[in-house]
Amino acid sequence: MAVELLLGALVSAVPIMLAAYGEMVLERAGRVNLGVDGMMALGASVAVIVASLTSPSLGLAAGALAGALISLLYAVPVVYFRADQVVAGLALAFLSWGLADLVATLSVPLSAPIPQGSALHLSLLLLALLLPLVLWAFLYFTWAGVELRAIGYDEKAARNRGARVERTRTLSALFGGLMAGLAGAYMSLVLYQGKYFAGITSGWGWLAVGSVILGYWHPLGVALSTYAIGLVLSLRPYLEALGLGPLSVSAPYLVVILALALSSLLTRRLRLRPPTT
């Protein structure tokens, strides 16, 4: 049972992991995109349509691409016009939710799921486990990664030393969109067996944004924090058995809210300076 629980946690944590890795990279470059949940919904919706017309793997790719494309609506105002990133991110979330539902009405898709345990599913699990190592290597051991972190740490200083602030942030936002789209595609194609419905993400995008803070903006930390959220998510049947019914759905949110408060308190007590502005 323990193994089942640990593996089940991974299966449900994958979308939060993928989305959080993308958001983490953008936050290390000094910007926050609150549109993650919306980009996930759009990825989920586009993936179902494309998968039903072609193949599940193309569906995954299309979902990721849709997330990357829509993230431009965040990146352009925020990076090039210096618009308020909170407003732009939230507007992107709301816009993407609506577009996702609109796309889903275009056709009645035949379900084209990715079966759990299939090669494609396992490779996605592997991606979620290996990507933090790749991102760690990228952020800490390549020049591009150092440039990205420098921009997040002190934009002015980095710009004076020749860092390409706009380019780096735009690419980071695109990567964030790509990962959120892929995360959404995983939700609809794997977790919901090839189906899309309004509200499919059930707010997991916000959990992903929170887990970036909980993982202290470090790839390996984020891998751990998102997996912990996955554990809470897979405890739901046990909570429901306790008679909590729909209340058990709110458990991961309450846990993340509490964890955010504790980690902020800890950061403050230890007088740490978070690695991003």
């Binding site: 732009a88 979330a93 816009l95």
Partner: peptide, 25 residues
């Protein structure tokens, strides 16, 4: 006509995104 309920929020968000750019310009 087949437009989902959430599309109104999307339209509102689109207006805000364009306003962000217009005001910034």
């Amino acid at each position: 006509v087949g437009v989902p309920l959430s599309y109104a929020l999307a339209a509102q968000a689109l207006i805000v995104l364009f306003t962000l750019i217009a005001v910034a310009r």
